[in-house]
Write a protein that binds this DNA or RNA. Structure first.
Lengths: 258, 258
DNA sequence: TCTAATGGTTCATTATTTGAACTCTTATTT
DNA sequence: AAATAAGAGTTCAAATAATGAACCATTAGA
């Protein structure tokens, strides 16, 4: 692994649940030597990517990340644009909503809204989503360049549950169906007991730049409820796409595959 | 410079105004060899810190940054907490507002609201602020540990304008005054013609974790206007601190220097 | 068609990174 | 109160990864 990769992998040890870690702990988890770990952390700290609590000596992610994220947001203001819509939709559906952004052919979750109820699906910000086995992934693949789609279905498709579809042709069918329907459906393909629907958020070139998904326990998911959620999520994803680009969804869509 | 530092310095070439750059351009600006630059970019891309436009081959900041920034935000939700208050204050004051976060003893701007008027102060997201010559810096230094304050005033203080106060003792006086007043005032200390007031945002331990500032052209800044803005910005910074920590501002404040 | 500019790659040379062993500080146990 | 343990941080010879001049490929423009 490159030194840069090592440094970044240190950053990836920090999670919502464990946002602060000590030097020894970081070294242990990363598998790097303590001296190496420290040197990397110091390099990261110099640029504000991590900071150290003056009191506890624990390290945590730094504001330098916020800063760069804001610069990106200025170009792709998905989060800012989407937030009000997501909040509204979350209030209406009372199920877990998550917004994911495309980056280098992967999807990663950048925002989550959880309903205030006991039995709900939990999704963590920062999670990478497999493309073939999540509603978000299918919705995304329904609006990507041919080459990206091919690459996504090229490798062996991991079976996460007994329900995961691992046959590329069947996945393609699901993608085609999602494209026609306007939203994707995934029944327990990634996690047992979780049903999801998702819509694609399109960029100015008509290709997907992110997805919006609703994840709910299967016990609360009748066929009718799924369809209702699907329509809702698709409508909001459409709305976000239009706000983001200042153009009609169909105009955007027609721009892809041209 | 460490390899990690080099990689991060590549990220820092991207700005709001130039969010997308080509390989040769990045190499030229960073001063690194093209091969080196490329290798670093590939390492960064592997972790979603940059992404490459499939069409134009230009590089831009990636969603991996958004992801990590969100994890940080979960711990220090300054931005989320502050945004509605900032927006409201921006509407009322009709001047430039900027929110900065403390990171490793520096302040960097993570959000800006500009008024819709021709003559206004422009601040860029991502800017680092000198501590001795900005209202934000003074407000920050009024609520930091003794050691941080000493470090900030130790080096030579750069004169940015003819108005910049570069005598450490005078700066200390300004800090003391800000602490008593509840907000700081900076008259053209960083840029000619710009007047700013700022309030500190406190963390759970009573020390500053960020600042909120109003920057206005001096031509619109009477003594009375400055005082009014100062009181407003201090009140909002207080409010944000309380929301953030769920405790009264004075309770927080008393916790520091204990 | 030719030229120039950019993206991307190779591999021997060079410089940075590595990690075992060390100290220092702080918390915990006896 | 002394002993022990555990974590933070440092050092320097050895090992490894980074470097960059020169290369090719593709695209844009003259």
């Amino acid at each position: 692994m490159s030194t840069v990769g090592k440094a970044i992998s240190l950053l990836e040890l920090f999670t919502i649940d464990e946002p602060e870690l000590g030097l020894t702990e970081i070294a242990r988890r990363s598998g790097f030597d303590k001296a190496t770990t420290r040197r990397l952390l110091v390099s990261l700290a110099r640029h504000g990517f991590v900071e150290q609590d003056a009191e506890t000596r624990l390290y945590r992610l730094g504001a330098g990340l916020t800063r760069l994220a804001r610069i990106r947001e200025a170009r792709f203001p998905i989060l800012q644009t989407a937030l009000p819509f997501i909040r509204e939709l979350a209030a209406v559906t009372a199920e877990t909503l998550h917004l994911s952004e495309a980056s280098n052919g992967s999807l990663l979750t950048v925002h989550v809204e959880h309903p205030a109820r006991a039995n709900r699906v939990n999704v963590n910000v920062g999670e990478y989503l497999p493309l073939h086995s999540t509603a978000s992934g299918i919705a995304y693949l329904a609006h990507v360049r041919e080459a990206v789609l091919k690459a996504a279905l090229a490798g062996p498709l991991a079976p996460f549950t007994a329900h995961t579809v691992t046959d590329p042709t069947a996945v393609l069918d699901a993608i085609e169906a999602a494209r026609k329907r306007g939203y994707s459906i995934m029944d327990q393909g990634y996690e047992e007991g979780v049903h999801s629907v998702a819509g694609a958020i399109l960029g100015a070139d008509g290709y997907a730049i992110g997805t919006l998904a609703i994840a709910a326990p299967v016990v609360r998911t009748s066929r009718a409820a799924a369809a209702e959620r699907g329509k809702a999520v698709a409508a909001v994803a459409r709305e976000i796409s239009e706000r983001l680009n200042g153009e009609g969804f169909n105009v955007l869509k027609s721009r892809a595959f041209a």
